[in-house]
Design a binder for these strands. Structure first.
Lengths: 211, 211
DNA sequence: TCGGTATTTGACTAATCAGTCAAATATAGA
DNA sequence: TCTATATTTGACTGATTAGTCAAATACCGA
């Protein structure tokens, strides 16, 4: 029935996500997105009613892409400590890839755009908050397994601890973006995170946690 | 000699700082700053060569304003644990004030603008990185006193620990901005920070750390 | 081959953007 | 009162912004 669908919408989502992540929402124009995606402006507004709508959709699209990776990393079949160390590996590798390709450590796309726009647009604030909550759920699940295995204090408040972990990791990613430097993330984030979680590792084991 | 100086430049610095902090660099226009500061555009460009220059100057201005508070909070005459709890009080009170006045938790102005612009403007990235380093120096100083007093492990790497503390606090401020919610900062940040620092407090003492 | 439908195009608008500049103004010191 | 100097003004530009729209196009299924 009619003209067949194309990948135009997807190209717009991908391009918007990359440009906004590497720069910022305010620094990226609809014209810029269209040019890079090789899409005419008329087509843009055929698929998205506004620039803000595209940004929202690209956030959703990226989170949907991310979930399978999180499901793998936080698979209950893994040792819970490995889940967190794998998470740091996953984050570090992506950041390093972007640093090599674009010359810029880009940090967390959700937090970057959330920090920029949450104060002006409460819908985007709510969306990023929901993503934050969703990620913390993975952490809570792993923390409960750690308690069950006697790896951390059984009186640990997993909701609070998950929020600490999230703040700590995103704080590091933010600083890495600002300093355009992955040194701390590469050499210290894993052992620091283990200390924050409260898991007891030998000095030897801690040393192994540098990427 | 000639027409006497006015507070026009200061009004521009204050206004730019407030508007950028509450919104974002990209969302604030030179016209908007001028209108709020009651300054004509010609005067703006008499004092600042560009919008970016004003933003840089407003960052410097705010940091200069902040230093006396940090000097007080991190006075060597204070108990080092008190320095950190006072720091959290200081941060929380400012955030709560802005939440009441503007309806919005605004987070850290340096990190917010740094996250937005560091990838596009390496000068601003370097400036925020320097401010970050300057703040961590206060933390390092306090950590060394804690070691001397036997409050934390003497083998603590104070440079790394200071970076952890900074990432943790700024991560929390960023999340507070995105969620427009100070709950965690009010009830949990102090004890969480004490745990991260590695200071041993009794359960009773920990409970006292809610603001 | 043709009709219906989704997609694409390019020219368009109106608003806003950062930035310019020559002229007007105010005042301290001579 | 005069002059040097710093400040202020308001109209101006040219570029860029997000967003609009009617017409053209492509193709599936009948």
């Amino acid at each position: 029935m009619g003209r067949p669908p194309t990948n135009t919408k997807l190209r717009l989502l991908e391009t918007a996500h990359e440009l906004i992540w590497r720069n910022s929402y305010g620094a990226v124009s609809v014209d810029g997105i269209c040019e890079k995606a090789n899409v005419k402006k008329g087509s843009f507004y055929h698929y998205f009613p506004s620039k803000a709508d595209l940004a929202m959709a690209s956030i959703d699209w990226w989170m949907t892409n991310t979930i399978p990776f999180l499901d793998d990393i936080f698979s209950p079949s893994r040792h819970p400590i490995d889940r967190f160390t794998l998470l740091i590996d996953f984050i570090y590798e992506k950041q390093e890839d972007m640093r090599i390709e674009f010359g810029q450590v880009c940090g967390c796309p959700f937090i970057t755009i959330g920090s920029e726009l949450a104060a002006q647009d409460e819908i985007i604030g709510a969306k990023i908050s929901a993503i934050t909550q969703q990620k913390m759920t993975y952490y809570q699940n792993a923390l409960r397994d750690m308690i069950a295995m006697g790896l951390i204090d059984e009186k640990t408040n997993v909701e609070l601890k998950a929020e600490e972990i999230y703040a700590f990791i995103t704080g590091n990613m933010m600083l890495a973006r600002i300093k355009n430097d992955l040194k701390f993330m590469k050499t210290s984030l894993k052992p620091s995170l283990m200390n924050l979680i409260g898991v007891n590792l030998s000095a030897e084991d801690l040393k192994k946690l540098t990427i």
